[in-house]
Write a protein that binds this DNA or RNA. Structure first.
Lengths: 269, 269
DNA sequence: CGCCAGCTTGACTAAAGTCAATCGGCGTGG
DNA sequence: CCACGCCGATTGACTTTAGTCAAGCTGGCG
């Protein structure tokens, strides 16, 4: 499953991330590098864009963590997704003219905006990369169902346990080290609360509780998973990052049969 | 914007729904009818499928309401989305081999399963319909952001107000009557609670409260919106159903330029 | 060394959940 | 036609969970 990487690919989280899921040829790698051509450096706490902005680009995260959030006019805030290096951000907003979320850094970060039209290039040159892009967008949708369940029906400790396992699971893929048990979380407890739907104070208490139970250890911003099975049981976590099915797109599913040989990506208007 | 409909299309909610957003040609209508060829009738409270089922189909809702829900093993349940006639259900699950949600009826309903490969047919024959299918999937994703904000950061009355406005907004599109102010909600208060993340008892109280404030009127399962502006202000509702941008797909965005004339939908493996 | 952001803790408040009793409509069967 | 039973809504009383406010505390950094 894992592609052989060239030396120069080692610094691209995007390539590393994608090559976990599909084999990448030279052309594929070249295309991914093109997505990362433009770099924008952002300090901690800066916005990449805001809700309502006229968005012509998607973004690749090159370094640092960011998050997307939505807010109410009285200051209440809900973080919707945390983005790691190698993530592609902004797919859902393709459907609307203006950004529906705010994108902001957790720490200093570099993002790579690329124009929507690059998606077409992907289709033309690297259908398997296009398939992965689309499939990752669908998976984001599925993962959001877990978030909805978390916010609607889970207790504070369950939420926190879920968040920890989710972050670790993603970092394992991104780092290539599937045994990873520790991470630095560059979020303060107010931000964590905005992510899991709690107040900063309650985040502190819930953290203490699962630490006291021996499920995790903490030191500053570092969190170490000590009892993964118990965390899973507590939070009903299911790892959705291990596998991904791009076949629906390339072959339109296992049940794809028949001729359909004259298929064509629609021409621009 | 609205296509001229043939007499025989009047009974297809799918056609009515889609023709709100794009002009449908004869071929398009034919394709949509094909998606509704197979019919499955389901009584109230029956599952169309369950989490873990091996899904080879997507589904069109022909009549009745259904909902998708996820659950915890101790019985807690979270309804993720309510589906109306004319909705296409199951796009996100394309990315995974097995269903991630349960699909169940609110009332007796007819659904039309269609195989994944029909998506390919859509691409080949009706790119604008394919574009709309994809774009609707992306919009579902965006709407889920509203749900996340609702569950994470909104009060009981805000949640209920939001739900009412959301349902009305969708029924307006589906019915073609944009002035609609009343609806029958075929959900009991336990189900409503599972949708907005509250207990059945608290749903009752919140309903009473916004009714006492004159924002709505109720009679049995019927709800009438009395003060829409106030409901909007209370719930921070933004109507995402009025417009939809399929251009990103057909032309890959307004910024689509350049040749890209040899583009082709990837061949099946 | 002192400041400041952010974490922790305690005391109190507010919101929502739970339990239980009651009510009311509706369909069924006598 | 009426009695019964059931489901679901409502209401009250009480509990639990989480939020708020405020006071320390700590560790990094200028």
């Amino acid at each position: 499953m894992r592609a052989t990487l060239h030396m120069t690919d080692a610094d691209s989280c995007l390539v590393r991330n994608f090559s976990y899921y599909i084999d990448l040829g030279e052309e594929d790698v070249a295309l991914l590098h093109e997505l990362e051509e433009q770099e924008v450096a952002l300090e901690r706490g800066k916005h990449a864009y805001r809700r309502g902005d006229d968005l012509r680009c998607l973004h690749v995260v090159k370094t640092g963590w960011l998050y997307s959030y939505v807010d109410l006019d009285d200051g209440r805030r809900q973080i919707v997704k945390i983005h790691h290096p190698g993530d592609v951000v902004g797919f859902p907003d393709l459907a609307v003219p203006r950004a529906t979320v705010n994108l902001m850094t957790c720490e200093s970060a570099i993002v790579c905006p690329f124009p929507r039209r690059a998606l077409r290039a992907a289709f033309d040159r690297c259908p398997n990369v296009a398939a992965l892009l689309f499939t990752l967008a669908l998976r984001d949708h599925i993962i959001m169902l877990d978030t909805i369940r978390l916010l609607g029906r889970m207790t504070a400790r369950e939420r926190l346990a879920f968040m920890i396992l989710d972050l670790i699971a993603r970092l394992r893929i991104a780092s290539g080290d599937l045994t990873l048990r520790s991470m630095q979380i560059p979020l303060n407890q107010t931000e964590i609360g905005d992510y899991v739907g709690l107040s900063n104070v309650h985040v502190s208490r819930a953290f203490k509780a699962i630490e006291a139970a021996g499920l995790i250890e903490r030191e500053g911003k570092a969190v170490t998973v000590m009892m993964e099975n118990e965390l899973c049981a507590l939070s009903h976590f299911e790892n959705r990052y291990l596998t991904l099915d791009t076949g629906w797109f390339l072959g339109i599913g296992a049940d794809a049969v028949g001729p359909a040989s004259n298929s064509a990506w629609p021409k621009p208007a």
